[in-house]
Design a protein around this nucleic acid. Sequence first.
DNA 1: TTGTACGCGTTATCAA
DNA 2: TTGATAACGCGTACAA
Lengths: 327, 327
Amino acid sequence: MSGPTRTPTMADVAAAAGVSLSTASLAFSGNKPVSEETRDRVLAAAGALGYAGPNPLARNLRRGRSGVVGVAVGRLSTAFRDPAALPMLDAVSEVLDAAGLGLLLMPHGDEHAGLPLDAVIYDICGCETWGPYDDLVARGVPLVVVEGPAWAGATYVDVEHRRGAADVARHLHDLGHRRVATLTLDSSHPQREREAGLREVFPDAEVIGPCDSDLVAAQLAVGAWWDRGGEATAVVCQSDVQAAGVVLEARRRGMDVPADLSVAGFDGVATPWLDVELTTVVQPLAEKGRATARAVLSRIAGEVADDVLLPVRMRVGGSTGPAPSTV
Amino acid sequence: MSGPTRTPTMADVAAAAGVSLSTASLAFSGNKPVSEETRDRVLAAAGALGYAGPNPLARNLRRGRSGVVGVAVGRLSTAFRDPAALPMLDAVSEVLDAAGLGLLLMPHGDEHAGLPLDAVIYDICGCETWGPYDDLVARGVPLVVVEGPAWAGATYVDVEHRRGAADVARHLHDLGHRRVATLTLDSSHPQREREAGLREVFPDAEVIGPCDSDLVAAQLAVGAWWDRGGEATAVVCQSDVQAAGVVLEARRRGMDVPADLSVAGFDGVATPWLDVELTTVVQPLAEKGRATARAVLSRIAGEVADDVLLPVRMRVGGSTGPAPSTV
DNA sequence: TTGTACGCGTTATCAA
DNA sequence: TTGATAACGCGTACAA
């Protein structure tokens, strides 16, 4: 019948409906009133031609927006393995979706140059330098940094790491602990803040060593430390996953938690496979996500967005108890 | 000094460099030869003006591509909680990144209309209907379905669910089990296939009930079943997470695994917090991701992509053993 | 090797 | 309420 049919454009629809291009556009966008009858004609023509609506690429060029927000995470498999990351990103996504924005993953290592992003969320603790940064600045793409390094021009969303860590430290001190060791993360803003909080109470706390927020990694790290003679009545961890690893390894070595060893975590995520509730610092993860998304929306709208500092709350569980009489 | 400076365009750069627009374009893209000296002049002018390179929005309109691939997952917090999802998406992302494509999350419920996507990956088992489907078809956006419903025009990536389930069933039968129950997922393609595999060997296997791939959900489901008198010498689960829940709940009730109860999982993911290695069906998760990404690239290139069926391998662990003499 | 001119498919401004 | 026309910023035949 017909020739090699190109995919129809709005101009085709307008022609078929016997209206002008601009009228057709208004019929679809509703940005200005169009008579009922005209709109029906346009939509009917669209249906007949199999027109699927305005081409997003062209619309984006006109609007100067892509509708996409990038989120820089580390390697996906490690970023999302952290149970604290999920409620946060979930909340980000929910707020952005409601605003019609999509969330694009930017795994570390790939520069993602050439993708039009309306804004970028940087949510990788532990990396103080980041390839795409200069390019984003040059392009004027708003940047929202979560618990990250202090970069010029970015909006910050942070958590009271230091206070949370200090609360835990005081809790342990109140329980009589004097010899406290800590499992750390790689150097990063949260790690530095938390260590500072810990040292407000235990200036000489021993560092067991850095390890990923990973159960097995924590087991290995604390196990190796004990093997080389490490001693403490309490171990302060930087995540609940780490803390779970320490609990399991302590038990494997015949220690009782919390009788022989107190263990504290961070985050306040669920560890249903552990039969003891961890003493931890509960972060408002969903609110962190919402605050981040709100900052993104403000920045995209061209407003100035205030930095955010979110409160934490210590939750005392069964993984900490009075210090044993002898070490 | 200068007025309200717009962000510079390539035309500004060309003018500043004293060359034509097309020459400037070539200097940036390198699609046709440009004399060394001219290119230097162009790049110098770009630097002087603070030009950050061709506008991706305009480039996309020209090319008819957005460089973005959508991936439909369920709610993020549940989709990524499944440890089997991560290695898969990680591999997808790796291959797509290498091709210069970004990955956009499409949580369920949001239609993401108006976002220009070059292709979409559908990776939600359990949903047989999906809002955006019609729109994607109308737009001619390639669709790659992972373990999902059979939709017209889509490319499929699937796993030998049925064979894996049958292998586990035969393994249990060989161990003498005759009374086998199964914890299921919500009705979905994988669930139906696996149940069929199970019933090849145990036609009368009792269904404990559907539950999410979640540790606590599995504990509750199997616990309730036992409470109402359920009996079996082996429980076949649809994920390792479910299986871990069954193991923990069995122990909580004083049963020994595998002496009193054999438990089998699916996926082949790590469960380091469990002190027994699960008998399970190992999926090639990374390969599933790569195959999916390859299918996406083929479809974007306009080629026909063959459907893919990935092999599985049963791994016998310590969670299954000979059936106890009496039930 | 460089320049000219047009088109990609919309939305927005302005007049009618 | 509708229509003509100009951007949006860039690629790319085609000509020089």
